[in-house]
Design a protein around this nucleic acid. Sequence first.
RNA 1: GGAGAGAUGCCUGAGAGGCCGAAAGGAACAGUUUGCUAAACUGUCGUACUGGUAACGGUACCGAGGGUUCGAAUCCCUCUCUCUCCGCCA
Length: 423
Amino acid sequence: MLTIPFIRTNTEQTIAGLKKKRFADAEAIVKQILELDEVRKNLLQQAEQALEKSNAIAREIGGLMKSGQTQEAEAKKAETAELKIKIKEFGEAAKKAEQDVQDVLVTLPNLPHSSVPEGKTADDNEITLTWGKVPSFDFEPLAHWDLIKKYDIIDFDLGNKITGAGFPVYKGKGARLQRALINFFLDEAIKAGYYEIQPPILINEDSGFGTGQLPDKEGQMYITQAEGLYLIPTAEVPITNLYRDVILTEKDLPIKNVGHTPCFRREAGSWGAHVRGLNRLHQFDKIEIVQIRKPEESYQALEEMSTYVQGLLQKLGLHYRVLRLCGGDMGFASALTYDMEAWSGAQNRWLEVSSVSNFETFQANRLKLRMKVDGKSVLCHTLNGSALALPRIVASILENNQTKDGIKIPEVLVPYCGFSVIQ
RNA sequence: GGAGAGAUGCCUGAGAGGCCGAAAGGAACAGUUUGCUAAACUGUCGUACUGGUAACGGUACCGAGGGUUCGAAUCCCUCUCUCUCCGCCA
């Protein structure tokens, strides 16, 4: 969430940033917020002035009572009647005004970093680098949805029976490959200095707000009926919310956490032919890295995270590319996002397998996550990225590494899998 | 699920209508002293909004939200959470 002081002192920059993010009516909304805030301040001031007077009288009465001047005290009481009405009226109006400001403020996305390219859709994203080669086959390669059937390792029909579409069942070597990837990714992260966290996978409303899923993406999350808890769409939510309402010291930073969780996404209305098989699921596993940084270090941290994620893809031997997302394709809370896409050898297309973002103070402001610098508290910067999301990695491995009679497991995974080929 | 107890600052813990943003101790930080370590002494030691160039003020916050009162950490109501005992249970 943007702060009012920032918007006030950087009004033009705010409007320009919102436009880059393709936010409609930027000028009007910004103007509206600033006006609402003036109203709020004015009402608050009036309420507080009345309160001040009332408190002073109350103190006087206290003094009179103590010295036994009961009659004088009684007389004073009458003076507060009018003030009480004022306090109530202005207080309520100020509260409402604050809510009005807040209601508009939460709808504003984060402003994009200056390096974010202009653009509207995924077509306008900037390809910053491509690694590896497109795999070639001397036979007609099968798409992963055919391979998983051929080798009986992932079963959509079974998942459909016990839950519904988009909830696959991993079986045998399919299940073991999943487990191998999870362990491999976690071990790599720990080697890189990340601290492992196993968070709850249901979260409350405050947590959803803290990282920016609520109220924006209400419809994307599953919610439990009895308790109103949300199933996490990503481990980013619980792991970042660990630091909600926290004031860190400089010594605590940087914080580098990693966690593996299942992720749940309703993906309402986004079903279609291009999302077959593992390309888009309602439940999937992901290893997420989360960092909390001093503001001046966050962009360096973002590059480190990007490099780290690329290292994983290189170790798995996957042909991939890195995109710098354009303003129109970026997420609500992000200031700069790199997407990593792995090549899918049979679908002949790129699959997004990681998204690494710097949120600057956007989440920290919602979370009230601050650090003490020279006695003053300043908002931290938060970052996160997938390292990595499993299903599309599995899809790429299956498709890219297929031979006529089996699938070769990347070497780094063999010790984790306990087998080197799926036949 | 049933019965009881409780929720105060970084921690422990006092406070039981006005003098309480809140005692005291500990931790932490800074300084003094000191062969080193330690100890001792002194000081600092919440957050947010708001007025002001600043100095310095104002307001709110003692789990959350309401209420009573001139005045609430303190009284009343609702909710949440924690602990103890019983029940159930991976």
